[in-house]
Design a protein around this nucleic acid. Structure first.
Lengths: 210, 210, 210, 210
DNA sequence: AGCTAAGCGAGACGGTACGTCAAGTCTTCAG
DNA sequence: CTGAAGACTTGACGTACCGTCTCGCTTAGCT
């Protein structure tokens, strides 16, 4: 996935997959030790017991390297049927929370900034994540519609933002403790479900016109 | 607010306030032109027609400078009574959306990363923003309670995350267009209000046990 | 002489001449310790207690730095009258020998290679050295002609090559000991004077046609 | 001559002599195109249609490779009797001039620098060239002495330096045109012969004491 | 009015990381 | 074992930026 172009399986020494692993491990360790900004390519190379050239052969820039290492290839790729809309959304929410709490502390904001700074990275992020996420949510909504659980069908992007955003905000904007995440997620689930059972701003209209 | 220590009112030439303005303008312009990562102190100084020392006399680091320039001193500081919980939340939401769309494109993620990288900046962010935000939300909830609009009182942090998170996600995680923000905010308002009128996980329980 | 452009004596912090000296000393020391090829900019900077940028502000490349440091500004610039052609030539020869034995062992061949590899350096070498050398030799020949010491006026370039070449060859092609240089120079002086007192290839003609 | 160790004539595939030629040609071409410093092993291999390993199997280092390719195996090895000292020296001079003008422009200074930087190369240079050169010059002087052409027998090293040095200087120190070399060599021959017919510093003494 | 401390633009300074590139070694597959 | 291909480690290069310091000058405000 990170390989720029896997050499035509003809001549030449093949890439050593142990090098990929060593780089990934070194990045993970160093991110945990020195943080996102403190990470240097020289240190990654040294820690991995690898030359800098071997890194740049795999990742065009430091930012791409971190991106490749931190972001797992599968993300919200599967949407197993849990039997109800509520259970499906809870599963999605759990996976979102997981993907934001597993990387070393403080790397997500750095990564996000780099993604916004580099169009190439942004494209890759889009194709790798957002697409899968959109697909999964659509599937879940389709199933719920088939079950007759939906009064109204919410905008997929809005639902996506509603699920991902608060978790991100809890962790990185409000700096609330990850352990207290359940406080958020249970409330969040209610809120999300509310979107599926009432008119598309009905509450607001009612509340705004007493 | 940005002055590190206003000179002992004794002798010496006073700070030139035109310098502060020139720096702020240069930062704004350059952020728009070259992006967050492309900003250099030398260029800011040159654009502002100012020496680098004059900048560092006012801001301890590059990150602090951007922080000082981008973040307005007032943010959610006031919570005028709009007559109903729904209207109050709508106002808050509007202010949040505004604060995230006015800075030059792509600066918010960079700023957030820097805030997470520097404890000093994080402290300032906390005191300047989160505190005011918490206070404002509490006030609004108090008023709503007094009006009898609350069935249950939601966790303030969760409500905060629910309001701020989706807007942030819409703009910076999903890269949806700022013009389409109303699509999100109207749905979001419904969802937020849902938290105030039903049991703390009632919907989930009901949906989970048909 | 090495300064690229001495800042208009207007604003800005002036160059610190101690930095120039520190660089020159470091280069000299390191050339003696690790040789021409073993010299690295990082080590020069470290030894001089100076940032690399300070070096590159003064010298465009590593090669130029060595050139600037090794080649004294004055070389064969003066041609004091020693009273006779022979004495003048002996003085020139002594200065040539001196300029080739004072730099750290083995730096001259490296420097010469770099001069041939870089047109810019070649130009500077030309203007700085060859010109002065030509001028000086011409002067000496003029004086000798005025004294009536010249039967024939030799080609200046040929005389130049005849004086410089053997010393260079002795030291760097044949690797003979510098202490034995007098063995060469005394013979060389005879040979050079021979060019001034006989017809232009007269000896060859005589020898070739006995 | 260039092979490091010819494989034990035991089993295995024999060296392909076409590879040697391809390497030599590639080096010659590339030296002419990109110069001494611009030459890279990767490019040599590519141009020769050969793997880098095949080069290193034949030459221990880049410097040795160039040395092996540029320096012909025979150099001043033979000293055919031309009938007179003058003619013999003229022949030697011609061969010297030839050996310095045939390699691609500017490679000689680079090669010389490398020889001084690497003791192993220096040894090979010594044994391959200087020895043969000394032997040849001694032979010529012996013949001249037998013919009675020598008033005094000059130091062989000094004579060597006197012959080689000016040619080198003309081409690589003064950057005079190779076409004009005859201007130098004719004068040079006179000067060299002067050493053989007068006292070892007689002219200098005479000139110095009028 | 003069003194003085601080401000000011300019830019050199030490330091540190980046990404590139070359040398020489090693590893695969094919013959 | 030779050969081509190319990945590997090592380490220098030259660039860029940060935050500090130094220069010569200007500008208030206290005495």
């Amino acid at each position: 996935m990170s390989a720029r172009k896997q050499a035509r399986n003809h001549g030449g020494r093949p890439r050593d997959s142990r090098v990929d692993d060593a780089i990934a491990s070194a990045v993970q360790e160093l991110l945990a030790e020195v943080g996102y900004m403190g990470l240097t390519m020289a240190e990654v190379a040294a820690r991995a017991g690898v030359g800098k050239a071997a890194i740049y052969r795999r990742h065009a820039t430091k930012q791409e390297m971190i991106f490749d290492v931190l972001l797992p290839d599968q993300f919200l790729a599967v949407a197993p049927d849990h039997g109800s809309l509520s259970a499906d959304l809870a599963a999605v929410l759990a996976e979102i929370a997981d993907s934001m709490t597993t990387p070393p502390q403080g790397t997500i904001p750095g990564l996000l900034a780099d993604i916004h700074a580099d169009p190439a990275l942004r494209d890759r992020f889009d194709r790798k994540y957002l697409e899968a996420q959109r697909r999964t949510l659509t599937e879940i909504l389709d199933r719920a519609a088939a079950r007759g659980e939906l009064t109204t069908r919410p905008d997929p992007a809005a639902l996506n933002a509603l699920l991902v955003g608060p978790v991100f905000a809890w962790l990185f904007l409000l700096s609330e403790s990850p352990e207290q995440l359940p406080v958020l997620t249970s409330a969040l689930l209610d809120a999300a479900l509310a979107l599926t059972s009432s008119g598309p701003s009905g509450a607001a209209v009612q509340a705004g016109a007493p």
